[in-house]
Design a protein around this nucleic acid. Sequence first.
DNA 1: TCGATATTGTTATAAGATAACATATCAATT
DNA 2: AATTGATATGTTATCTTATAACAATATCGA
Lengths: 162, 162
Amino acid sequence: MPETTAAFTEHDHAACQSKALAYVIAQCEAKGLRLTEARRRVLEILLESHTALGAYEVLQRLNTEGYSAQPPIAYRALDFLVEHGFVHKVERISAFVACHFPGQCNAPAFLICRSCRSVAETRDARPAEPLSKDAAAMRFAIEDTNVEAEGLCQSCQSEEGA
Amino acid sequence: MPETTAAFTEHDHAACQSKALAYVIAQCEAKGLRLTEARRRVLEILLESHTALGAYEVLQRLNTEGYSAQPPIAYRALDFLVEHGFVHKVERISAFVACHFPGQCNAPAFLICRSCRSVAETRDARPAEPLSKDAAAMRFAIEDTNVEAEGLCQSCQSEEGA
DNA sequence: TCGATATTGTTATAAGATAACATATCAATT
DNA sequence: AATTGATATGTTATCTTATAACAATATCGA
Ligand SMILES: [Zn+2]
Ligand SMILES: [Zn+2]
Ligand SMILES: [Zn+2]
Ligand SMILES: [Zn+2]
């Protein structure tokens, strides 16, 4: 199996999920970050699958659980989680996906299925070489990089052929 | 000079601009595409600088020229230009920038200044290697890739220090 | 000229994101 | 325990980005 999350492969997702959650809890302890109720619930919702969810989908999920939250609740929780690298924003589809490489994720890159919205994360994508070289040459200070590939996962290819 | 557009460097932008426009005109001729008034105006607006413009900024520009257009006018023109590779969408900032590598642009990558919104385009970014390798391994069919780096251009770094 | 196809005009609305401000909670110090 | 500054939440309203839907035109080959 390649160095990707198991998004498009069979795997023990319960383990996948609890490992990531445990890591976030530990990190917050260690760094004195406050993993509040809302933040934790949002993270748990995202960890349920390898599918990216929009902020309003997350919000809806919160609200089907007795919560009665407005957009800023979801966005603030997501901002916190993204800021600390526990969740990634997938710009291409304006959606959020939990990080599944707890603690090992520097420059993530994503494979995004346009049909089922599953997102596989690969790590160690050295920020696209020619880009960082050019950036240095023109004294451009890169702060953050997105590498996102959209397409069809294997199972959605089959369905589309059908 | 590296293989980037001249976005962050001194250059003969008039030439830059007219070369790109001429290329698009020729391509449309050759492929029987209709570069209508609206499409051409939108392209010209984007070619004026290496700054990315939002769809509504483009719309506003159209409307300050006697036009009286609604959002779909701008989006349709942009869709056409993006579809044929004459314009790129910069997902990270939901904005559009003219392609300045007419005919030589396969997998563009961008350096985006978060302050002045200038965008430099580098070509030949082989779609991030680890990603395409992983994709092949899991039979994921990549259709389109974004590589976008956000940061500060040299001149905006100076200003921020001030 | 006819008819299929592509494009534009127009209205309305969906979807994504944030500003602003009041209230509440937390955690460290007196 | 009370004070206080910093952080987080609740709430309303609004802003930005993008598209659906459908009628009216224009284009171009048969
Ligand atoms: Zn999993
Ligand atoms: Zn899929
Ligand atoms: Zn130029
Ligand atoms: Zn700049």
